[in-house]
Simulated scan of single mutants.
Amino acid sequence: MTRKKTKLSQYVGNKIREYRKKQKLTQKELGDKIGVKHNTISSYESGTVSPEQDSLFALSRALEVKVDDFFPARDDSLGNLDRAIELSNEDLNLDELGFLNDLLLQVNTLEGEERKRFWDNIKFAVEFYKSHK
Rank of each mutant, 00 (worst) to 15 (best):
L81P: 00
W119Y: 11
G13W: 04
G13F: 03
E45L: 06
F71R: 04
E127R: 15
N80I: 11
L104Y: 15
L78N: 09
S50F: 00
S46I: 05
F128E: 15
L8W: 07
R83Q: 15
K133R: 06
M1C: 14
Q106R: 15
T48L: 15
T40Q: 04
N80T: 15
S42P: 02
V65I: 13
D75N: 13
V12L: 15
N101L: 14
L100N: 11
E90L: 09
S43T: 02
G79Y: 08
V67S: 00
A58H: 13
N108Q: 14
S77T: 09
K33N: 03
K5F: 00
F71G: 04
F128I: 08
V49I: 15
N39G: 02
Y11G: 08
T40G: 02
S60H: 05
R61K: 13
D68P: 01
L104Q: 08
K116R: 10
Y44M: 06
S9W: 04
V49Q: 11
E114T: 13
A125V: 01
K21C: 05
D91V: 01
Q53F: 09
L97R: 03
L100Q: 10
G112L: 10
D32C: 05
K21W: 01
D54I: 03
F70W: 03
L103M: 14
L100M: 12
S77H: 15
S55E: 07
N101Y: 09
G35N: 04
K24W: 04
G98C: 08
E86G: 01
K7G: 12
N89R: 08
R61C: 02
L104C: 12
D75L: 14
T109Q: 12
S55L: 04
F128H: 14
M1I: 04
G31Y: 08
K24T: 07
E114P: 07
K130S: 08
T40M: 13
N14R: 14
G98T: 00
K24I: 01
K21S: 07
L87A: 00
L81G: 04
A73R: 11
T109V: 08
D82S: 03
F118K: 14
Y11A: 08
D95A: 14
T109S: 07
I41P: 05
F118C: 10
D76M: 01
D82W: 01
I16M: 08
E127M: 07
R117S: 12
S131Y: 07
K133N: 14
H38W: 12
A62G: 03
E96Y: 04
V65Y: 01
E45F: 05
Q23A: 09
L81T: 12
L110V: 04
A73F: 01
P72Q: 03
G79K: 06
T26N: 12
S9R: 03
R74G: 06
K116C: 03
L110H: 09
Q106V: 01
Q10L: 13
T26E: 12
N80W: 06
F71W: 12
I41A: 04
I34G: 07
L92Q: 00
F118L: 11
F57L: 05
I85C: 05
V126Y: 13
N93L: 09
S131N: 07
Y19L: 03
S43L: 06
L8G: 13
F71S: 09
I16V: 14
S55W: 00
F118M: 14
K133D: 13
G112F: 13
E45Q: 05
S50P: 05
N101A: 11
L8R: 09
D69N: 15
W119M: 15
S55T: 11
L94M: 14
V65H: 02
L110F: 09
Q23M: 08
K7S: 10
